[in-house]
Simulated assay, not measured.
Amino acid sequence: MSLLKKCVGLDPNFRKPLDIGLIWEGNYWDDQDVHDCCDVDWETCEILVRKISKALLLPTAPTDGSSKENEKVLILLPKIMQLPLTILAAYRAGIMAIVMDPLTFKTSTLQSILLAEQPKFVVTVDAFWQAQELIEVKSTVENLPEMDETQLLVIRHVAPNNGVPPPKRHYPARRPSYRTSLCLRDGKDWEWSTVMAGVTVGEYSKEFEDGWKWDQDDVIMKLVDEEGKIHTVRHGELLEKLDAKKAGLETKIAEKNGPNIENIMVMDAPKDLETLTNFLVPWYMGKTMTLYEGPLSYPDSSRLAQVISKHNVNILLGSGTYSIPNPEYLKFFAVPSLKIIDMPDFPIVSSYFLNFQQ
């Protein structure tokens, strides 16, 4: 079974079309309990993968007559809902994805990647918030001399829509922000929503399996970590890692007497094979994927527990260590839904959650 079908293939007995497949929690949260979030059902996830896949092959991107095997796309996205959808869409289109985290990348590394890989285009955002810091991405990328031959497919993530008057008060960390704007360069930039609105797809059963057929040894992705190291991912090794991770989590679930597991929260952005495996395994198992875009300390150190409690997360999955300045704040929110913490490099976190039995 292909990675695509394992991750977003619809099945009324396993991955019901109207059940929730993806939850995104944004950076903003205030003392009035206002949150920035959304959820997407499986049917919409599947449709979006096909729409994005077609968009990646549109002639809006530069073409030079080369074969599709040589085409690459640079995905420079924070942990927003378009990130997993675009990764799978590139896989479906037969385009090698180069994935970088805009939170940790260095400009010099990005320049080197652009020169070495020469992606047809870059998928990115206008900007994103981390706590009250607004991180401008598009304006940084578009001014690089290495971008002369590369176009941008830009998600309007923070900038307001044109013509909408600004509010009387500015709220730091909240979308939309009138302290930034999305300016599109003619012939160089393409706005995500406009492109997607023009893409049509057929019925699932007729079109789903029309994706690119990867061989086991094909390089399907290159992941760039915070040090600028490139991690090459081959098709077969990713499938092996996903099968092993799935089996390991299923064993842990069985050891807990088989609790009902529906929702897995992923802590890491993909930067190597291990974090990519963690990133995709919720969908590989047919479970809801929950992503949190902001820092764990904003607006205070209880945020992780708040997200888990709000979305009824069952498994917390991470491969690194994380900064939570006042971890005792995690007890501000009960997390009865949380059954498993799979964070081997950060075991101490389990002792801070209220009502969690390791």
Rank of each mutant, 00 (worst) to 15 (best):
N326V: 14
F121R: 12
R156F: 05
N161R: 09
K241A: 13
D19V: 03
E191I: 06
Y178A: 02
K168I: 10
T150Y: 06
I315R: 05
M196G: 02
K241C: 09
N257E: 15
D11C: 04
D215T: 12
F353N: 02
D101V: 03
V266S: 03
V195R: 10
I324F: 11
D342W: 13
W24G: 04
V335R: 09
Q216P: 03
L153Y: 13
D11V: 00
L83I: 08
E207D: 11
N161S: 14
G163H: 04
D33P: 03
T321D: 08
E25D: 14
K68G: 01
V164G: 02
T277G: 10
C38N: 12
H157K: 04
L296H: 09
R174L: 10
E237T: 09
G320R: 08
D11Y: 01
S177H: 00
R92I: 01
L4Y: 13
A131W: 07
K241M: 05
T321I: 01
V266E: 07
E250Y: 00
P12Y: 04
P295G: 10
K188N: 09
I220Y: 10
A55P: 02
V40H: 01
S350G: 13
D345I: 05
V224L: 09
S177L: 04
F353P: 03
T251K: 14
Q357T: 12
L152M: 10
D186E: 09
E46A: 10
L316Q: 10
A269G: 08
D64K: 13
L22D: 04
